[in-house]
């Protein structure tokens, strides 16, 4: 499963204005290689929610995107902390710990992680106080 397209991005903590720029670039990149519109919309939504999470909940982090030669688009969101203390609650629709600033920007509905899981074909999350790594996979329709 070699990567045929690889991109890396940095995300900055509390960058509410820039939030979404990475997702926008990923959407544009995948659009140019002809990814199906329905799959692309799922990827865009999951990527945007995950990017927002890194900005409002984590201390920034790194996003990588790979398109593999077996037809999977994989996104990895790795942050340096502080980790998700209660994963069960974080996966519960409507539960949110977003700050007032984040809420003023339109976030904090508590739908982020549940929605990301719902729209992804592969979903894996590992968290500790040293950081969280979220790996998402999307099968490209042939």
């Amino acid at each position: 499963m070699a990567s045929i397209l690889h991109k890396e991005y940095k995300v900055i903590r509390d960058d509410y204005i820039g939030a979404g720029k990475v997702s926008s670039d990923i959407k544009k990149t995948l659009s140019t290689i002809g990814v199906d519109a329905g799959v692309l919309r799922r990827i865009s939504v999951a990527c945007y929610e995950s990017e927002i999470n890194m900005i409002i909940h984590a201390w920034g982090g790194d996003i990588t995107m790979d398109v593999t030669d077996d037809g999977v688009i994989r996104l990895v969101f790795a942050d340096p902390g502080p980790g998700i203390p209660d994963m069960a609650k974080a996966m519960t629709p409507g539960w949110s710990t977003a700050s007032d600033t984040a809420r003023d920007m339109g976030f904090g509905a508590g739908m982020g992680l549940p929605n990301i899981k719902r729209v992804s074909d592969e979903f894996d999350i590992k968290t500790s106080e040293k950081g969280t790594t979220l790996t998402l996979g999307f099968k490209v329709e042939q």
Partner: peptide, 17 residues
Amino acid sequence: VTGLANVQSLRTAEMLD
């Protein structure tokens, strides 16, 4: 339809086409 007048409402629209 939204009262959120900032760049994130635009990005949300973009992601959802």
